[in-house]
Each structure stands twice: as C-alpha cells, then as structure tokens.
Design a protein around this nucleic acid. Structure first.
Lengths: 221, 221
DNA sequence: AAAGTTTTTTAGCTTTGTCTAAAAATATTT
DNA sequence: AAATATTTTTAGACAAAGCTAAAAAACTTT
C-alpha cells in the first residue's frame, strides 16, 4: 500500500463518509465538508483519479474505487484505534477524542497501528460506538457489546442480558439495571475486572466481572 | 506557544542537537544533518529568524534563541515520551522506536502529551537513556536510574546499589549481579512488581521488588 | 596580500495545495 | 424551449518548502 499526503487522506476519508448517505458525492458537498473551495476539490479529484483511488468523470460526481475504499478503511482504522486509546488509556472524555485522533490518524506506520491494536486488546468499536476495521480492512457490522468491552465514560443503553436465571435478575433488580437503562462505566479495575458503573447522576456503584460479562449494551446516540 | 510546521520543527530540533557539541551551527552542518541542500537551510534560517526563534546574521552561523530553545524542548519532550510509550507499552524494541517517534512528535496537542506523560508515570528518561523534559521544559541532568524505572529490553550497566548490607550483597552475589554487570529487564509484573532480568545470553531470572529498588543502573551506550 | 578554495547566499524554477474570478456545463423555471 | 440559476471546471496566482546554478563572502594558502 502506497503512502498518501495528509491532504489526500482527508479527502478520501470525507468521500468515504459522504458516500454512505448519498451514492455519489458532489463537488460542493465535499468542499463544504472539508471547509475548502469547490475549485480545490476539483483539483484534488483529478489527482486521486490519476492515482486510481476514485471513479470520476467531470460534472458527474465521484465515488471511491475498490482501492480508494481500502485506503479509507486504513485511515478509519487508525482514527478509531487512537480514539479508543485516548478514551480508555489517557482518560480523555468521549467528546474530546475525535479532534486529537484527526492528527494521530495520519501517522501511517503499519507496525505501530497493529501493535497499538494488540495493546488495546483488539477493540471492535471506538468510544462513539463505530466499528474499528481490522488489520485487513474488514469491518464488523455493529452488534451488541459486552459491558467489559464498553469504553469508559461512554453513554450506553442496556440491550440484553445473556444469562436469564432468577439469580442474575435478582441482582440486576437490586442494582436497578434493566433493559433500556442508560449507564456509563466510570472505572475498570484490572485486579479483579470489577467496574464502577453510573446511572444518570446517581453515585457510581460496583459491578463484578461475572455480572458485567452478562450485560450487553448498545451505544446511546 | 505558537504552532510550527513539521519542517520548521525538524530544523529547530536539528539545531538544538548540533549546538550542543559546537557552540554555533553552520549551514553545511545543518544541511548534512537534515539531508537537504545548503540553499534550503538559508531559506529556513531567514524564516526562523523572523519568528525570533534563532540568532542569525548572514555568514555567521546560528544558534537558537531563548524562545527557540523552548520550542526545541517541547519537540524533544514529545519525541521521548512517544519513544518510551512505544518501548514500554507497545513492546517495540530499543532500536525501532526512534523512527516512529519522528512522526508522532509532530502532533502538537499539549493535553495529549501531558496525559500521555501521566499515563506513563512521568518517566524521566527515554529508552535510550536520554532525559525527558517535563511539562515546563525542564530537563534533568542524567542521573542514576533505579531498576524499576528501566524500560524493558534496554541494555544497562549496574552503577550502584543503595543498600550495602551483607544480606543484599549475598543475594546479589548469588544472582551474579555486580557493579558493571550488563543486564536487561525482560518483563515486569504489575502484581508484585517483580521482574525478569537477563544477563547476556543466559536465561532470564526473577528479581523481587525489594531487590530491584536497590539496584541502580546507567544506560549502556 | 593576492590567489585559490570553500562556504554561504541569492536568484529563479518546481511541486503541492490552496485561492479568486471567469467560463462552461448542467438544472430549474417560466 | 428559452431564460435564468446553480454547480462545476478552468485559468491564473500565491505560499511553503524544496531544488540547481551562479554570485558573493569568508577562509586558506602560498
């Protein structure tokens, strides 16, 4: 895989995100997204076309080629892994991580990213709940997340409980956790994998590893 | 503190390193260090002079101003913290960290760096034994390092032992550790802060927290 | 101190990525 | 379908950071 400039990467990423909603992306849409001028977009589109990263005929809009998509997934992988790192390890809040990851994502060193992935324990979703592509660019369709995998300080909604025994339900009732409850994990303890959970503005309380492993959540959007 | 381009930062950093040996840095020295041409150096020196980062009169060589030095220390802080992170957390080897840190150092987000510093436990030296400037740009003159602070897989030489009791000496003798012994820490265990140490090519062996805290080393250069 | 050598600077050109203003193509209205 | 409006592209300029080749300054030699 070749290397692309920061500017090229930002265009590729923006097209990737925009073409999800629409099928084909227009010059103005992209200029608006990147806070640049339409003329600059056209210039860059010509360049990316030559590099075979997108399909583009003048006046016809554009979409990423297969190669372009691969590049985009690489950028998104880097972005989301750094977001996870910032939230989980450096204790950045939810809303601060995106901006910092915008810069870190442009450091393109495969070994760095793969080792970071490993260090983080191969997370599948970033702190916003968006899935993280793996080293081969494969991306998982969003699915339920076990509480142990939920990043810190990330609002989530309880979606299911795997064990349906009366014992676990008794415990859940006591902790006032039900399907639909909105919560955040405030702290995780490596020692016994217990965690502190907070519901709304109430004081945080502890959940054991066993209980956490049976609670599944979705991100609160 | 203003923001500087990657290119400007590379020049500033190179001058900082070169002016330690010499007092004043020459155009050719810098061109050689940065693998660029003398004419490019002159151009950049004019620019950095206007920004008051260096003292420079045509044909006279240059050195960083007080402001330039502050900027340089910021860059070096970022570089060395990332090196420490790569070696200690991502398990990069000794000799791989520099190249990757060359890219990461240009992400200039104060909060990111200060939180990274905290996450790493405010290390004082990078994996090469070079001191890491603190958040205020203060740099420690190299001093002895306790074994617990020694980064993993980093060759070091035992320089002193704080406790001189016969008990510790007996233990050291048994482990074949003496002043001047070259060793590397291969693993650290968070649970009891014990560590695995290797001397040369012999099999690694365990050292307790108590023992490690009394062994001081210097980097093997 | 004059001549020659080396170093440094200047002048002018290139590439990347941006911009503005004008022209061309496409869409929308009447 | 003609007129009008919008979008997109082209043309030409600019700043950053690099280059080559030539000029200027500073140093070595003899």
């Amino acid at each position: 895989m070749l290397n692309y400039s920061t500017s090229e990467e930002n265009y590729i990423k923006a097209i990737f995100h925009l073409q999800k909603q629409d099928d084909t992306v227009t010059t103005n849409e992209l200029a608006n997204e990147l806070k640049t001028k339409p003329a600059s977009v056209t210039d860059m589109m010509k360049k990316l076309k030559i590099k075979k990263l997108l399909h583009y005929q003048p006046y016809q809009g554009f979409r990423l080629s297969t190669d372009g998509n691969k590049v985009a997934l690489g950028i998104i992988r880097r972005h989301r892994l750094w977001e996870y790192f910032l939230a989980e390890k450096l204790k950045f809040t939810w809303d601060e991580v995106h901006e910092v990851a915008e810069d870190l994502e442009h450091v393109t060193n495969k070994k760095l990213i793969d080792k970071l992935d490993e260090f983080l324990g191969f997370p599948r979703v970033d702190p916003h709940g968006d899935p993280i592509p793996d080293a081969n660019g494969r991306i998982e369709i969003s699915k339920k997340i076990g509480l142990p995998e939920l990043p810190l300080n990330t609002p989530a909604v309880v979606s299911s409980v795997s064990d349906q025994s009366s014992e676990i339900l008794e415990l859940l009732q006591h902790k006032k956790i039900a399907i639909g409850t909105r919560l955040e994990v405030k702290k995780k303890f490596d020692f016994d994998h217990s965690m502190e959970v907070r519901i709304g503005r109430q004081p945080a309380f502890t959940i054991s590893r066993e209980l956490a492993e049976n609670i599944f959540v979705k991100y609160d959007t």
